[in-house]
Design a protein around this nucleic acid. Structure first.
Length: 700
DNA sequence: AGCACGCCGACT
DNA sequence: GTCGGCGTGCTC
């Protein structure tokens, strides 16, 4: 009896985004299993396409009325007998693509690394019956008696407020197993002497030394260890590379290295391929940035995200699906538990909480940061007056700097955000492109921040004066100021171009741009959050939640109960920080967005293309949209004559809207336009659809 | 993507 | 009468 392989083609064409059937030649029948890569002929024999086998069916199980009625072509080649596409990852890719009106093979490109021969051979040669060391159960500390364990074991879902300070994480004692007398207080984490009883059930004969890790990392490592102890996998996605490092450090205290696999952008393809195959072999904890959420972890028991509001979770490649959404789809498909851990709450998670879909879990008696808001004066130009740091904060910082490091968070790197004329205060602009001038170093030649042109010999066009001074404060400038104010203290600057992962727990002033704050064992003695006002002045739908997130994450780098000065901020946001009730602004923000039909209260789709295609797509949607359709308006991107429109629709219509838009894309892709003019050349697709853009209104 | 199929203008 | 233009549609 012959068999038929049902395959997904590795092609970005939407009209090919469905399964195709091929005959399986007898020679490869044994190895042609779901998940393997094959090459198949597509259209008139000679040309080959890469594909993954998704399903093997007996050809007498095909029904003539439902399946392809013609003669099947044969699979041309089995590329490798290693099944790299796990069935659940295929299901995930399909659902994620459908949700985004996108193409499944685009999702697969994010989920499956390109073929690597060496790791595959190593995997095939290896004893697949290998049993990895067992993982000792540890309690998830700080959340009351087995609260999070209960969520995980029940396949539940929770929005978890992270423990807002560093935690000293110690390896479980070899007797471990029962969590009976957990105090539920992360501060009391047992330092535990490094025992060397050499329990054969644990990976190493010597336990790792206790390590300071961020509170969230301790919680997620313990949650993962709990999941692994039940022989189930955990998948944990975090925004960036440094978070991966923190989490890995925490995990290696609790679980054998063999059980931890990484997926991140800095890996080579070979490393990713190895991680992928390991994850399929036995239960692991898969950690990493966006790609980790697609890890083919066997027996999935837990999916978790740290800081889901971080913009890094927005995928940059088609179909632009946010890691949070992938996690939600995967949770629904797998029945695994879901933990959304953060300090600040995203409006997206708040929506799920208000729906009752996520349960709220907070630390039990956590010591929250002692946030002290100090509203402050600005001068008439709107620039911070000389007293940038209020005297109370000065005093506290100076005092704290005797005991340990003080963190100073600023919004921008370098020396300042702009230059103004010393005489008339006019902002200096580039003579080439009109962009703002800045100075990368003290006293260096002014340079355009947009086009990079140097502006030597600049004269103010208003008053003719030739001298400029910086306005706004970058990290370097702040560091210089503080250096004068703290004469005998070490000053450290950390920003995007000079990243510092960790500073010693010694007196120092650490000036860091938002998001680049180094860790310190035990936490900072004091935290100053300086440029809040400027950060809030940005345009955008998510500025407020983003700024809260940035503040909260820095505040949580302080030692338990350390003072945190929130400079120049009053009102609701200051209140939320002071009370450490970061859900309140999220609730209010979400309420506003419901009234305005803005995401995430509703979903959005951005339609780009020819006027006819965009208008046609809007008509095809019928009455699914809510709120007025925005546009179509002309945009000359990617080609002149293009228009863009934004439609908004309730979550309940998502499936229908995505399917309709995908059908429109397919319809328009078969009739391609030819640009008028002498030489005919291929034009942009007549219709492009992007769903759930985080900042959909920024360009319309 | 590519390539075949199909219905209207100037050529042996 | 036919050769060939590229719009349209399909790919197991």
């Amino acid at each position: 009896m012959a068999t038929v392989a049902r395959v997904v083609l590795d092609s970005p064409l939407p009209q090919l985004d469905r399964l195709f059937d091929y005959r399986v030649p007898a020679e490869i029948e044994d190895d042609c299993v779901p998940g393997v890569r094959v090459r198949v002929p597509l259209r008139s024999g000679a040309r080959m396409t890469d594909a993954y086998v998704v399903e093997i069916v007996a050809d007498d199980a095909l029904s003539p009325e439902n399946d392809f009625p013609g003669e099947l072509s044969a699979v041309e080649e089995l590329v490798s007998p290693v099944p790299v596409l796990a069935p659940e990852v295929w299901q995930l890719a399909r659902a994620v693509a459908d949700r985004a009106a996108g193409v499944a093979s685009d999702v697969l490109r994010l989920a499956v690394p390109t073929r690597q021969v060496r790791p595959e051979k190593a995997w095939l040669a290896r004893d697949r019956g290998h049993v990895p060391p067992r993982v000792t159960a540890v309690p998830v500390e700080g959340y009351g008696d087995a609260v999070l364990e209960g969520v995980i074991d029940a396949g539940g879902r929770a929005a978890v407020s992270a423990i807002p300070h560093p935690v000293l994480l110690a390896a479980p004692t070899t007797t471990a197993a029962d969590d009976a007398d957990s105090t539920g207080d992360a501060d009391s984490t047992d330092t535990g002497d490094a025992d060397s009883t050499g329990d054969p059930d644990t990976a190493d004969s010597t336990s790792p030394a206790p390590t300071w890790v961020p509170g969230w990392a301790a919680t997620l490592a313990q949650a993962a260890a709990h999941t692994l102890a039940g022989e189930r996998s955990a998948v944990i996605a975090v925004p960036d590379f440094r978070d991966v490092a923190d989490l890995e450090r925490a995990l290696l205290v609790l679980v054998p290295a063999e059980r931890v696999v990484r997926f991140d952008a800095k890996q080579t393809n070979g490393q990713r391929a190895r991680a992928l195959l390991t994850a399929r072999t036995h239960p692991v904890v898969a950690i990493g940035s966006r790609a980790a959420v697609y890890a083919p972890a066997s027996e999935l028991g837990l999916i978790a995200l740290w800081d889901d509001g971080d913009p890094s979770f927005a995928e940059q490649r088609a179909p632009y699906v946010h890691t949070r959404d992938v996690a939600l789809v995967r949770t629904a498909q797998s029945g695994a538990a879901l933990l959304m851990v953060s300090h600040a709450r995203s409006t997206d998670v708040q929506r799920l909480v208000e729906l009752g879909w996520l349960r709220e879990v907070s630390p039990y008696r956590a010591r929250v940061p002692k946030v002290i808001p100090t509203a402050h004066q600005t001068n008439a130009d709107g620039y911070a007056a000389q007293a940038r740091i209020p005297s109370s904060a000065w005093r506290a910082a100076r005092e704290a700097s005797h005991d340990g490091p003080v963190l100073v968070q600023v919004s921008n790197p370098g020396f300042g955000t702009g230059l103004v004329c010393t005489e008339c205060g006019e902002r200096a602009h580039c003579r080439v492109c009109g962009g703002p001038l800045g100075s990368p170093h003290a006293g260096s030649t002014p340079q355009c921040r947009f086009c990079g042109a140097l502006a030597a010999g600049y004269r103010c066009p208003t008053c003719g004066n030739g001298r400029l001074k910086p306005v706004g404060q970058g990290a370097q400038r702040t560091a210089d100021e503080l250096g004068r104010a703290f004469p005998n203290t070490r000053i450290v600057v950390a920003d995007g171009s000079r990243p510092i992962d960790e500073v010693p727990a010694r007196p120092a002033v650490v000036v860091a741009t938002r998001g680049a704050e180094p860790d310190v064992a035990g936490g900072y003695a004091c935290v100053l959050l300086l440029d809040g006002e400027r950060m809030l002045a940005r345009e955008g739908l998510r500025v407020q939640e983003d700024v809260l997130r940035i503040w909260a994450n820095a505040a949580a780098k302080g030692a338990p109960g350390a003072p945190v000065y929130l400079v120049g901020i009053g009102g609701k946001l200051a209140n939320a920080m002071a009370l450490w009730r970061l859900d309140v602004p999220a609730h209010e923000e979400l309420t506003d967005r419901r009234e305005l039909f803005f995401p995430p209260a509703v979903r959005v789709a951005t339609l780009t293309g020819t006027d006819e295609a965009v208008t046609g797509a809007i008509e095809a949607l019928g009455d699914a949209p809510v709120g007025p359709v925005l546009g179509p308006v002309p945009v000359d991107d990617p080609t002149p004559g293009t228009v863009r429109a934004i439609v908004r629709f309730p979550y309940g219509h998502g499936t229908e809207v995505a399917a309709t838009l995908k059908a429109e894309v397919i319809r328009r892709s078969s009739t391609r336009r030819v640009v008028k003019g002498g030489t005919k050349r291929r034009a942009a697709p007549a219709l492009r659809v992007r769903m759930d853009d985080a900042e959909p209104f920024s360009e319309v």
